[in-house]
């Protein structure tokens, strides 16, 4: 199968501190992949580099042939914290922004997602709970017809019902050819969904395995993930 995303020899420093070193990663199209690692392991940075919003990195990123940042941005949809909007912005105004700015934004699809997530378009951003805000972000991200979806910790600090909604929306709205990369520091809640697992540790991608290969060895994804941190607990 063709590679959808290729990350080649990517290194990144900020304030002279090493964040990522020699990261290599290839993802095929049509997969749901977890990007697992502790907080601060560099998951968000890796996503930001892929998305072209982190600068000054070494190495190469290729998304379906697009290597330039602007072209990459057109092919991927990244969960954004909506910090570019003031708190008094209504949901429908945010949607209008997305609909005019992104050529691949499908308003009908957003409407379906919005109803599924039970979000009121008249609500202001300041009125949204953490879970509702996260649901809105997911709805906006999925309403674009992209090749690659980057979901940065979509389950952080939200309740079980919101989590269930987000997981179901992934199942329902995922395009057959699209690949979804989900970062998390906790795998249980999404493990049944995964095709592949990528472990980020020690400033790099330590391992990349198919979920069924892991289960074939009678290990759960969680056990597999925890095994990378086992020696540290002993200390």
């Amino acid at each position: 199968m063709n590679d959808l995303l290729t990350v080649k020899d990517v290194s990144y420093k900020k304030n002279q501190k090493l964040v990522l070193q020699n990261v290599n990663l290839k993802l095929n199209s049509g997969k749901i992949v977890a990007l697992l690692g502790e907080n601060g392991a560099g998951k968000t940075t890796l996503m930001r580099i892929i998305a072209g919003v982190a600068k000054n990195y070494k190495g190469e990123i290729n998304i379906e042939g697009a290597t330039k940042e602007a072209e990459r941005k057109a092919k991927l949809s990244f969960t954004d914290g909506l910090t570019g909007f003031s708190d008094s912005t209504k949901i429908k105004e945010v949607v209008k922004f997305y609909a005019t700015i992104f050529e691949d934004f499908d308003e009908n699809e957003f409407d379906e997602l919005r109803q599924f997530m039970k979000l009121d378009p008249e609500m202001k951003l300041s009125q949204l709970s953490r879970g509702m805000r996260e649901k809105l972000i997911i709805a906006l991200t999925f309403s674009r017809k992209a090749d690659l979806y980057l979901l940065d910790e979509p389950f952080g600090g939200i309740d079980a019902m919101a989590r269930k909604k987000i997981i179901n929306s992934i199942i329902l709205w995922k395009d057959e050819k699209a690949t979804i990369l989900i970062s998390d520091h906790f795998v249980n809640e999404i493990s049944s969904l995964l095709d592949e697992v990528v472990i980020v540790k020690d400033h790099t991608v330590l391992e990349h395995k198919s979920a069924d290969d892991i289960r074939q060895t009678h290990k759960s994804i969680e056990e597999y993930y925890e095994s990378f941190y086992a020696d540290e607990d002993d200390e």
């Binding site: 749901i32 179901n168 199942i171 329902l172 049944s192 095709d195």
Partner: peptide, 9 residues
């Protein structure tokens, strides 16, 4: 997939 919370694949 939805009923079982798994991937369509």
């Amino acid at each position: 997939a939805l009923e079982l919370t798994v991937n369509v694949n």
